[in-house]
Amino acid sequence: MKKRKHKLAEIVKIFNLEVISGKEFLKREVSGGYISDLLSDVMANSQKDNIWVTLQGHPNIVAVAKLKELAGIIIINRRKPDGETVKKAHEEGIPIMTSDLPAFELVGKLYESGISGTH
């Protein structure tokens, strides 16, 4: 795997993601990725400007992404965020994207494209 810097917009295009919120922030550059459905784990271990891959769609994911200054959130497996989540994401300026792929496939492809983990 060769490390490459990606902007959110490129990730959206390459992996055919649907952008639910934060269209105006897709110029953000992604520093790497983190995958977890446990919020304390993401709080403890994600890094600034990471793309966060999760199946959670409730409003608290926005608080976590904001507090950790993550680049954005990808919700996997055809899941959609709650209405309240979308509202909060607009307020806080957090890009939320959705993918039809399960976590394993999506993360494999992200990794292949040059986005590495936190280690």
Partner: peptide
């Protein structure tokens, strides 16, 4: 749970 995290933000 909807507004949880706002004080921290």
């Amino acid at each position: 749970f909807i507004n949880a995290g706002e004080s921290s933000i």
